[in-house]
Every structure is written in C-alpha cells, then in structure tokens.
C-alpha cells in the first residue's frame, strides 16, 4: 500500500490493538507479521493475537482487582482485544478465560476485514529508519534475533 501512514511490526495483542485504534481514527496501517512464514519457538498458528501461555486474562472483577479494572477501562476505551475476548469467553469463575483459537480467529478476522489495515507477511530484521515514517515495534518477548540485535545496537549508546 503506497499511502501507508504507519507501520506496525508484530500482530500480537499489542500490535493488533494498536492497528485497530489507528485505523478507527482514519489512518492507513501496514502490519508486518512474520507468521506463518517464520515462527517463534512458542508460536504455532497463522492467526494474529495468538495466546501462547495461559488462556486466562486473569480476574475480571473491576471492583477490587487491578487487572479487572484494566479490562473495564479497555472496554470503555473501545478495545478490539477486549471485545474479542468477551466474545470468546469460556467459564472460569471470576476470571476472564477464552477459547484461544476462537479469540485469535476473531481478532484476525476483524483486522483483515478493516478497509484501512493492510498486512504483509515478512520478518523485519532492523529498526526502520526515519524515511519509513511512523513505526510501532510490538514484537513481543520473543522478538526475532536479528531485530533484537539491531535494537540493541541502535540503543546501546544510551544503556
């Protein structure tokens, strides 16, 4: 897409939510996601927002729990991730747990159907320079090694 206004690297929970918030504000987004061309040691599915650990988003009580409060604030702010989590909810007492495949499928479908979001399957191996314009790096705890090394190189003079 030649008129991309912002690049997002990684379509996990952070990248997907960021893409949605931008697109809902009328901005053209290009997501760069390395799956399914390349997987991290923990990822298996081609979908975005894949939960690789627990299927629980922890307590959903917004009257006495900090994470439950964050859930509620996210709902009030119009979060895509919370809307999909609520839709894919499975019973878990006071916690918000989801059917992980359904959750990821819902997020992926919403992102792919948005007219202002485009995506490309590729691994980004270096921090894009300023000629790219706006960039959000949301590559997660399992950031690809090449990109992690480049980030370290670019920021190490400060650390």
């Amino acid at each position: 897409m030649s008129d991309t206004q912002i690049h997002i690297i990684g379509a996990g929970l952070a990248g997907s939510e960021a893409a949605w918030q931008l697109a809902e504000r009328g901005i053209r987004v290009l997501i760069h996601e390395m799956k399914p061309q390349k997987f991290s040691p923990a990822h298996k599915s081609a979908d975005y927002a894949e939960l690789v650990c627990s299927n629980s988003f922890r307590s959903d009580n917004h009257q006495n729990s900090a994470i439950g409060l964050l859930h509620q604030e996210m709902r009030l702010a119009g979060s895509l991730i919370m809307r999909c989590a609520d839709a894919a909810k499975v019973p878990a007492g006071g916690a918000l747990a989801v059917d992980r495949d359904e959750f990821a499928r819902r997020v992926t479908e919403e992102i792919k159907a948005h007219p202002l979001i485009d995506s490309v399957c590729e691994e980004i191996t270096a921090l894009p320079d300023a000629s790219f314009g706006e960039v959000i790096v949301a590559t997660g705890p399992l950031t690809g090694e090449a990109l992690a090394e480049d980030i370290l190189k670019q920021i190490s003079h400060q650390a």
């Binding site: 952070a14 939510e17 922890r58 959000i136 997660g140 950031t143």
Partner: peptide, 23 residues
Amino acid sequence: PHIRFAGQISGCEGYIESAATGF
C-alpha cells in the same frame, strides 16, 4: 522519535497489559 514501542518488549507483563500499551 519515529519509533514507538508497545507490548511486552516495552516492559509490561501480561496479555491485557500488552494490549493496553498497544492501545
């Protein structure tokens, strides 16, 4: 300043925390 960080690479922990920093 053209580069922003979000999610666990930015030093939050947890699914919804990541989504919130992405937001």
